[in-house]
Design a binder for these strands. Structure first.
Lengths: 143, 143
DNA sequence: TTTAAATATTACCCAACAAGTAATGTTTAA
DNA sequence: TTAAACATTACTTGTTGGGTAATATTTAAA
């Protein structure tokens, strides 16, 4: 039985990509093809993710032949939360706290309060994790 | 856009049902029909959940006309974790920690370590939450 | 100026799963 | 005997994750 993860593959890949690019030296960049191969992501999928990250000013790219992608943002200033959000991560422990779901028990329901609290704790934790602490050093080829 | 919750509706309903039954006086029981109406769950769905809880010795039932369901376990001894597990809750923050997924980066990947740690923290928290602390008092009819 | 090799962007596909509904069986008080 | 409850299994339906396919655009180099 396959069980759904809290964070999706795409969101995980976005973290990997960001953490990988954060390990490149200043001025370096890699083709999506090479990066995807290193990170074991399909090239097309990696390309789409890199583009989403670019639109959010996390990465940038050089188009055309011999182009590639690189990190634009300061890895010490971007958190796991930032990256996940770009790829559509919405923290939601329980449907009862969804904006467009009216839970009539909400006020008297301690489960609701519990989930609200846990969400907050986890969100704060994600915001504290900076990409600079997660650089994938061992995947960077030394040239 | 509808976003998937960490815990499913069925799991949430199981919590509600358990917390509701925990509020009944000793010896009392309710028909699934009444309980389902009070908790705003479809009768059929509630019935199926109650049956799962019974198989796990959380609830028990009286069959036949004028039958119903009631809590069998001690609500101070059953946790949210226990109830969720019965309904198939598998804590899994990220696919990379799934048994049958081989993540070749695992050892050098700090994301992996982070998710393992967060899972453990959240699991421990769920185990500490006892159903007795979540009784839905305001939904119990005083007779 | 043409071409090859890159990124950019949109459209589409498919299997798995959540969330329920339907149907039928079984039990028991009256 | 019957009505009203629980028990159990099978089916339905819409959503979504996780891609692939196709095509457009850009640019270095021949």
């Amino acid at each position: 039985m396959r069980i759904q993860s809290f964070i999706s593959r795409e969101q995980d890949y976005a973290l990997r990509i960001t953490a990988y690019l954060a390990g490149l030296k200043k001025g370096e960049f890699v083709s999506v093809r090479n990066m995807a191969a290193t990170l074991r992501i399909s090239q097309k999928f990696a390309s789409r993710i890199a583009h989403k990250l670019k639109k959010a000013d996390i990465t940038d790219s050089i188009q055309g032949k011999y182009g590639g992608v690189f990190l634009k943002a300061n890895p010490q200033k971007i958190s796991m939360w930032d990256v996940l959000n770009i790829i559509g991560f919405k923290i939601k422990f329980n449907d009862c706290m969804c904006e467009n779901v009216f839970c009539e028990f909400e006020l008297g329901c301690k489960f609701h309060s519990f989930f609200v609290q846990q969400e907050q704790i986890f969100m704060d934790t994600l915001k504290k994790q900076k990409i600079s602490d997660y650089i994938l050093h061992h995947l960077i080829k030394t040239s």
